[in-house]
Design a binder for these strands. Structure first.
Lengths: 343, 343
DNA sequence: TTGTAGGCGTTATCAG
DNA sequence: CTGATAACGCCTACAA
């Protein structure tokens, strides 16, 4: 591999000059520049990014911590992040925290030890206090799907409360009043807020909130099945079901079918996230769109702007979910009651 | 940040000694080691990985090129790769080629420019010749889902032909003889081999291969829908459908339902890959398991062994797909013919 | 077992 | 506009 020295020699200039044309951050005469470029060409010179990093104290890499690499949710997000950075010659290092406090800490340490210029973290287990402390460090931290007021300008999140609200409202608009809710685990703020939105919608329509019509699942498919089974076994009356995310909705759909429900007539179900496979389900799942890819692009732009001083168009910190009507809701009027299962 | 110099000073030893205890690759007396470790502790010393890389000419990073970051298929694979490396303190840089020759080349160049110690590439558009040339370079290249004889010990792949064979055989075992096939694009060797397997199964049971019962899709959901529509429109007779992958099977299922088919009675469908959402579908899709996560772990081990001289358990280069029976096949005896759609 | 010193390939600060 | 020449933080012969 050719080095900057060989280039400088061949071009008959100093290494400093070569470095200048490389980064074109200083005046270089056209003649000199040409000589240098020609020499680089001839030698097939490629700058050594490691040496550049050592000297400039910048690695052009940003670390990203997510719960899992696979899975529809993070996939879309990572994809947006990667493409945005790649276009500007920066690379991304993904690592996983598995929604576990210890492992999230390790992941972040790992990324920091890699000298990332910035970190994007989607934490599900770390405390606000820990993240605040972290942000005092040398590596800028950006938070995704999380809001910590002291770090507001480094946070990007979804209005989950509003999402929960419009989900339940969509059900109510179809005439349903007995609405069961399968929530994600409350220690996840997303789950919490979505449930709050659900309550607000109920309140707005003077429907009493019934604690017995709430089940706390795990955001997994099984959680949805378990939840619906719980409602059925406890002989609750309900004609519609709102789920904290699409996986659970899918699990609930499957269980409903096993119990002989005809969907959506016997039970209206709405999900949350609008993960890609929702349109594969039968009936196609009505859900709430969570623009994760857009959010991925946006965090990337935030760090591009804050850390790399790129000029960027406007920054958006709060994203709004929207209702995606499909085929899993039926008006209450024409729906037979879900009571059939509890008879 | 504390440097090795400050540690050496505090410990009263030379930097060389500090380096030794850091890498423990040379004899250091216990007493000295303790002193050094204590000093590191006190200073909160963290080695600068960039400096280490520059001096050692090793970045502890491996580049991975996939078609897309999102999507169930690559997600599972990347997940396996990441966890394997992360456990050994190496990081992974993912980038995308979008199944496009030019972009795959750019992606690889990008990774190489990042001084990766090795590359894992899942190429869908690069020629064998190009990959062979690439492997002559300084960066070791590992190929996934691809077999090039000259590079055999750097290749890991699935026996797609066998997969295609057992898929169609599963249909035949249910009594079907008129089997339509929706293939992926033939320029992808996976698609090609799966189709070959399909033909072999037909031949084995003396079923004539009918070119009119093959449609070439794009491995996307729409391809499956288009394919089935094509068969229906052309008034072919068939009672079963094998698809080159699960996405297309899912698209076909959806279209079948729109056309009033009752699944699986009116049409048996089998997919390929056993991507996670297949069990969400209704009916749950019978398919062929493609152990991508295992393969991800395995490539990682290959580079760990070849590039980083880690001792590893046995290496497996060829993986065998297996049949995953679920609910989308019905025996022909009890099935009404798919002709109903072409009447 | 431990220390000295040169090198890894760039960037950046000063002079000129 | 261009050229020396220190950093950058660590590794690794070679010596001792």
């Amino acid at each position: 591999m050719a080095t900057i020295y060989q280039v400088s020699e061949l071009a008959g200039v100093s290494v400093a000059t070569v470095s200048r044309v490389l980064n074109n951050n200083a005046k270089v005469s056209d003649r000199t520049r040409e000589k240098v470029e020609k020499a680089m060409q001839e030698l097939g010179y490629r700058p050594n990014s490691i040496a550049q990093s050592l000297a400039s104290n910048r690695t052009n890499s940003v670390g990203v911590l997510v719960a899992e690499i696979h899975g529809p949710f993070f996939g879309a997000m990572m994809s947006g992040i990667e493409s945005e950075f790649r276009a500007l010659g920066k690379h991304v290092i993904f690592t996983t925290g598995h929604s576990n406090e210890q492992r999230e800490k390790e992941g972040i340490d790992f990324l920091i030890s890699r000298n990332c210029d910035a970190l994007i973290v989607h934490s599900e287990a770390l405390s606000d206090a820990y993240l605040r402390k972290l942000s005092k460090g040398n590596t800028p931290i950006f938070l995704i799907s999380r809001h910590i007021s002291e770090l507001a300008d480094r946070c990007i999140s979804l209005d989950n409360e509003h999402g929960g609200y419009i989900a339940t409202k969509a059900l109510i608009d179809q005439g349903h009043r007995d609405i069961a809710y399968i929530s994600g685990p409350l220690f996840k703020s997303d789950a919490n807020q979505r449930l709050e939105g659900h309550k607000r919608a109920l309140a707005e329509y003077n429907i009493a909130f019934d604690q017995d019509l709430v089940y706390y699942g795990d955001f997994q498919e099984t959680g949805g099945a378990d939840g619906l089974k719980y409602f059925i076994d406890s002989k609750q009356h309900f004609t519609a079901l709102a789920c904290g995310n699409d996986e659970m909705a899918s699990g609930a759909m499957k269980l409903a079918r096993e119990h002989g429900f005809s969907l959506p007539d016997d039970l209206s179900i709405i999900g949350f996230d609008n993960v890609f496979f929702t349109s594969y389900l039968y009936p196609r799942l009505s859900t709430i769109n969570n623009p994760v890819d857009d959010m991925g692009h946006m965090v990337a732009r935030m760090v591009l702007k804050d850390v790399y001083q790129c000029k960027t168009k406007s920054i958006q910190r709060l994203f709004t979910p929207s209702y995606v009507p499909r085929d899993s809701l039926a008006p209450y009027a024409t729906s037979s009651s879900a009571r059939k299962a509890s008879s």
